[in-house]
Design a binder for these strands. Structure first.
Lengths: 192, 192
DNA sequence: CCCTTAAATGACTGTTCGGTCATTGTAATA
DNA sequence: TATTACAATGACCGAACAGTCATTTAAGGG
C-alpha cells in the first residue's frame, strides 16, 4: 500500500472523527460541513472527495453508531445473570454513545432513508436483546414481549430526549441507570 | 371597533390558521414563512406585521397547542371513573392535536426558549393529571408517581415519535389507544 | 529525471430563506 | 373633501451553506 492511499485513509479517518465529535456535541442538523472541515484540519472541498455528500457523511457516522450496538446481537449471557444485569448491560452500551444516540433519535426524522434504516435496525437489535433477556431471566407476564419492550425503550428514550427536564450535571444514563432499571423491574416484576 | 382593526384581527387569524395547518402537516422546521403566506393568501411581508418573527409565530401556535391541554388542569373526575377511563381521556385530548403535538415533541429542541417553556408546562399538566388519576383511582404501588408517569408518557411519546415503525394507516392514538391503556394497566396493576 | 495521476485546496456559485422597507391603497378623521 | 394613519404588498437584501472546479502539490511509475 502506497504512501498516497495511506494518506487518503488517514484523512477519511480524520474527517469521520471530526464529524463524530461535532455531531455528538451539537447534533447533526446544527453541524455544517465547514465546521467539520475545520475540526478535521482540512479544506472543505476535501470532505467531498471522501464523502459524496453531507448525507453520505452523516450516514457513515450513523453506521458506526449502529456498529457499536452489534455486540448485543451475539450476546451470550452467563447462566447466573438476572434481568437486572441484562438491562444494566443494555444501558451501559447505549451510554458509550449516549449523546450521539440522543441526537440521532431526536433528529433521525430529518436524516436520509439510509440513516432511518439504521435506526430501525438498532431498534430491532434492542428489541431482540430484550426478548432474549426476558426469556433468559424467565420473566413471565401476561403481556407480550413487544409491549414490555416498548415500555422499556420508551422510558429510556424519554429520559434521553428530555434530559433538560432532569437537571442532571452528568450524563442521564450515568445518573439514572439504577433508578431506571430498579423501577422497571418492580413494574414488570409485579405484572405476574 | 373599526373596519380596519377587524380586518387586522381577521388577517392575524388567517395567518395563525395557515401556520397551524402547515406545521401540523409538515412540521415547524420544514415550513417556511413564504409557504405560510401563500396558504393564508397574504403577502410574505404581512406576516411580519402580525408576528415580529418566525419564532414569534411558532410560539403563538405552540401556545394554542398548550391551551388545548388546559382542560386537564381543572379536570373534575366522576366518582365512578376508573384509571382506564382517565388514561383514555388523556389520550383523547392529545389525539385532538396528535400530529401537531408529535411534530412539537420531535422538534421542540430546535425551537425557542419560550416554546420549550410551553413544553415543560404541558409535561407538568400531564404529570399533574396522571398524579390525580392515580390518586382518584386509588392506585397503590411501591413506585413513586413520577416513575409511573415517566413510564406512561415515555410509552406514548415513543409511539407518537416512531409512528413510522408501527405501520398504521390512521393516527397512532386512534389505532393503539386501547392497546396502550390496557397494557399499561396490566403493568402497573400488577405492581402491588 | 520527467510525466502521469490523484489528493488537497479554497474561492466561487447557486439556492434557500428570514427579515426589511419604500410604495400603494384605503379606512378613519377633521 | 382633504388629510392623516395604517394595513398590505412584494421586490430586495444579506446570511448561511451545500456542493463545484480550476489550480496546486506531490507521489508513483517508466
Amino acid at each position: 500500500m502506497g504512501k498516497r492511499s495511506l494518506q487518503k485513509l488517514a484523512t477519511t479517518h480524520k474527517i469521520l472523527q471530526a464529524a463524530t465529535t461535532l455531531y455528538t456535541k451539537n447534533g447533526f442538523l446544527q453541524t455544517s460541513m465547514e465546521q467539520i472541515s475545520q475540526e478535521a484540519g482540512v479544506a472543505k472541498g476535501t470532505l467531498f472527495i471522501h464523502f459524496k455528500s453531507q448525507e453520505d457523511l452523516i450516514d457513515s457516522v450513523v453506521k458506526e453508531l449502529l456498529r457499536s450496538f452489534v455486540s448485543l446481537r451475539v450476546f451470550q449471557a452467563q447462566p447466573n445473570q438476572t434481568l437486572t444485569d441484562l438491562l444494566i448491560i443494555h444501558l451501559e452500551i447505549i451510554h458509550k454513545n449516549e449523546k450521539l444516540y440522543t441526537h440521532f433519535i431526536r433528529e433521525r426524522f430529518f436524516l436520509s432513508k439510509e440513516a432511518n434504516q439504521y435506526y430501525i435496525t438498532i431498534q430491532k437489535i434492542f428489541s431482540d436483546f430484550l426478548a432474549f433477556a426476558f426469556t433468559h431471566a424467565q420473566v413471565y407476564t401476561p403481556l407480550p414481549h413487544y409491549s414490555l419492550f416498548n415500555t422499556w425503550i420508551g422510558l429510556i428514550h424519554y429520559y434521553l430526549e428530555n434530559f433538560d427536564l432532569f437537571n442532571s450535571e452528568k450524563d442521564i444514563l450515568d445518573t439514572y441507570k439504577d433508578d431506571l432499571v430498579y423501577n422497571y423491574i418492580v413494574l414488570i416484576g409485579g405484572a405476574k
